[in-house]
């Protein structure tokens, strides 16, 4: 079963993403901050990670860089409200494989995950 890790400090966003993904045959894991996300990532080795950027302890961009440094094959999709072109570019340079923005659109979320899984 495909494992997906949702990382967001907002329980509302985690709930929304979890519900959107529940119609697919995915095993969903959650992390509420960057530190927990790295812990869960290396314990569970999810196929895809959805990662928020603005989080209280460590920013999503730092989490992305750290995970990619230790696992260059990590498939991380940024899931954020940040709409800046420069942020999109920074995450691409750090190795993100997708970028979805809040408020989430179910079709866009599922399509992005399918694309990432099909390309792996």
């Amino acid at each position: 079963m495909v494992k997906i890790l949702i990382t967001d400090d907002s329980s509302l966003s985690r709930k929304i993403l979890k519900k959107m993904l529940s119609q697919e045959d995915y095993e969903i894991m959650e992390a509420e901050n960057g530190l927990r996300a790295m812990e869960v990532y290396f314990l569970e080795k999810p196929d895809v990670m959805l990662l928020d950027l603005a989080m209280p302890d460590i920013s999503g961009l730092e989490v992305l860089a750290k995970i990619r440094e230790l696992d260059s094959q990590a498939k991380i999709i940024i899931a954020t409200a940040d709409l800046q072109d420069l942020t999109i570019k920074a995450t691409q340079e750090a190795g993100a494989v997708g970028y979805i923005t809040k408020p989430f659109n179910k079709e866009k979320v599922l399509e992005t995950i399918h694309q990432v899984l099909n390309n792996s």
Partner: peptide, 12 residues
């Protein structure tokens, strides 16, 4: 979450 989206637009 709402403020997150509002601020994101501000930042953009």
């Amino acid at each position: 979450e709402l403020l997150n989206m509002g601020f994101a637009r501000t930042a953009a």
